[in-house]
Nucleic acid binder design. Structure first.
Lengths: 161, 161
DNA sequence: CTTATTGCAAACGTTTTGCACGTTT
DNA sequence: AAACGTGCAAAACGTTTGCAATAAG
C-alpha cells in the first residue's frame, strides 16, 4: 500500500452529483438556481484546485448570460463546503482553493515553485493523529496536513523563469 | 516515547535571547531599536500564541511611551520569523498567530471551541512525511500539520456559553 | 552624518455584507 | 404570494507599503 497520486477523476456522474445537490438544497429549503448549477458544473468539469476568482472567471466564460457575481461564487462555495460537496485548502492570506470533494479525505503536497497540488492519503498518519488527539483528551474533528516542497519538474529548471 | 504537551517554558534566558537577537541584527546591518526590544520582550514574557494585533495591544500597554505602530509589529514579526526566533501558525484568512519559537519543530492541536493551542511532536509522522515527499519526487521544504478538535475542558461545558 | 526604522495613513487582496431587485417554489 | 437568491457596491479584515520624520550606529 504505497502512496500514489490519488485519481483526479470524479467518482460519480454529473447527474448523480446534481441530484444529490438538489436533495441537499431541498432539505434546507434552499433554492436551486442557475448560478448554483453553473458553479457545480464548473467544479465538475475542471479537475484541480481553484480560487474563487478563477472559478468566477471560468463560470462567466461558459455562462456569459448569467452575469454571476463573485459574491455568489463565495456564497455557493461555502454552501457546498458545508454540505461536504467541495473541500478547500487554505493558503493563508492568499486565500483558499476549492475542489470537488466527493472523494475520500486526503492531504496535500504542494510545490512551492509552481503551485502544483498533489493529493495523498496515508493510513498510518491518519491513525497516528487520532491517537495523538486522544492522548491530549481531545475529540478530534478534523485535521490539515500540508507538505511543501519542490516538485520533480521544478527541480530541473535552471531557475531562469 | 509518548506524546506530551511540549513544555511552554522558554528554553533560554531573556539575556541570552537578547544577545542572540542583537547579533543577528548586527550581522545584517540592522538596528536595535526600542520597538524591536519591546516586541521581543513581550513575546518572551507571554507564553502562548498571539496575533499581531494582540501583541500590539500588549506592547502598548507595557510601553505606552513608545507609541509602537501595528506596522512595526508586523515588520518585526517577519524579521523574527526569518531569523528563526519566532514561529507562526496560520489560520487561513483569519490571520496568523506567533510564538517565541526557539524550541524545536512541532505541530499543533487546536481546540475549535476555545481556541486553545497545544503543541506536540511525533517522530513517526515526521519521518512518514519525508518518505511521502520522496515518493512523489519532491524535495521537502516544510510541512504543516494541524489537528482540530474539542479539548477536555470544552467537552464538559454544557454549551451555554 | 549616513542609513535603517518608525508611525501614519493609504493601499492591498480576499472575503463578507446590506440592500433593492429578481427568481424559484 | 412568500421566501430565498442575486448583483452590486461598500465595508470588513488582516496585512503591506510609500513616505516624510526620527533614531540608531
Amino acid at each position: 500500500m504505497k502512496n500514489q497520486p490519488l485519481s483526479t477523476a470524479p467518482l460519480i456522474s454529473y447527474g448523480t452529483l446534481l441530484s444529490r445537490f438538489k436533495e441537499l438544497l431541498k432539505a434546507d429549503n434552499l433554492k436551486f438556481t442557475r448560478q448554483r448549477e453553473a458553479i457545480l458544473q464548473t467544479l465538475y468539469d475542471h479537475t484541480g484546485h481553484f480560487t474563487p476568482e478563477e472559478l468566477h472567471r471560468l463560470i462567466k466564460e461558459k455562462n456569459p448570460e448569467l452575469k454571476t457575481g463573485i459574491a455568489t461564487v463565495y456564497r455557493t462555495l461555502s454552501l457546498l463546503e458545508k454540505a461536504g460537496i467541495v473541500t478547500s485548502i487554505s493558503f493563508g492570506t492568499q486565500g483558499k482553493k476549492y475542489e470537488l470533494g466527493i472523494k475520500a479525505h486526503h492531504d496535500h503536497i504542494i510545490c512551492t515553485k509552481c503551485g502544483k497540488i498533489l493529493e495523498f492519503f496515508d493510513e498510518a498518519i491518519e491513525r497516528k493523529q487520532e491517537r495523538i488527539a486522544g492522548e491530549f483528551g481531545f475529540v478530534m474533528e478534523d485535521h490539515s496536513l500540508k507538505i511543501f516542497g519542490v516538485c520533480p519538474e521544478c527541480q530541473n529548471t535552471t531557475g531562469k523563469d
